[in-house]
């Protein structure tokens, strides 16, 4: 199944430029694993980064002192530190599997906070929506990004499947419904606080803030 919903280009630009916080970048990077289209755009944006770096207004007059060269020579003469093992993004998010995460909330919607150590702009969570369940109507004060990892859901805008990236800003209100045949697992990034309305609202507001 091909991905139909993509992050807006400005997010890809900020990702390629290295300006997103860890939580935001994790959302975009995970989308790229599903989406060769955005992956290729990011690759071009990195080519652009190299070109821009070579043409920064003052780079032609910039000088690097000989000390820096000497220090670099000293640094490369030392043995390289052992590289930390690279892990996949999902291993970082859920090292012991999704079910081992600290899921909060009873009922059809559960959330697990994913703390990557950098929440300067917002928070990352995983959301599990039971097959066929509806998330209470909520509106957004900041931005909410959702990336479907497994299963699917729909709202008044359309249907979303694995890899789809949905961005909602403060003007939207929505009430997503999980697909009936399987549970839906999403990664969600929220800057500022999400405000849930409806009967589950108070619970979710508390859970998301935990």
């Amino acid at each position: 199944m091909t991905v139909k919903w993509h992050p807006e280009f400005d997010l890809l630009v900020e990702y390629a430029a290295g300006n997103l916080c860890t939580a935001q970048a994790m959302m975009v990077a995970t989308h790229l694993q599903y989406c060769p289209h955005c992956k290729s755009a990011v690759n071009k944006l990195e080519i652009l980064g190299g070109e821009l770096m070579s043409k920064t207004p003052n780079s032609s007059s910039e000088t690097v002192s000989p000390d820096v060269w000497q220090n670099t020579l000293a640094a490369i003469a030392k043995p390289a530190p052992k590289p930390q093992p690279k892990r996949s993004l999902m291993q970082r998010i859920a090292p012991n599997g999704l079910s081992a995460l600290d899921w909060k909330g009873l009922g059809p919607v559960q959330t697990a906070h994913v703390d990557l150590g950098d929440e300067r702009n917002g928070r990352l969570s995983l959301l599990k929506i039971r097959a066929g369940a509806r998330v209470p109507v909520h509106s957004h004060h900041g931005n909410e990004w959702t990336l479907v990892l497994e299963g699917g859901f729909s709202d008044h805008m359309g249907k979303y499947n694995a890899g789809d990236f949905v961005c909602l800003d403060g003007n939207h209100k929505h009430s997503p419904v999980a697909a009936v045949n399987e549970d839906c697992i999403c990664m969600a990034y929220v800057d500022e606080q999400l405000h849930f309305q409806g009967w589950l609202g108070p619970i979710l507001n508390r859970v998301i803030k935990l």
Binding site: A29, Q84, D118
Partner: peptide
């Protein structure tokens, strides 16, 4: 920038930014 902000990082920069090439 993360080091100077004293952020405890649970994830390596190159895991998020260096995805395998297509």
């Amino acid at each position: 920038l993360r080091r100077t902000a004293k952020l405890q990082n649970e994830v390596l920069t190159e895991e998020i930014w260096d995805e395998p090439e297509i």
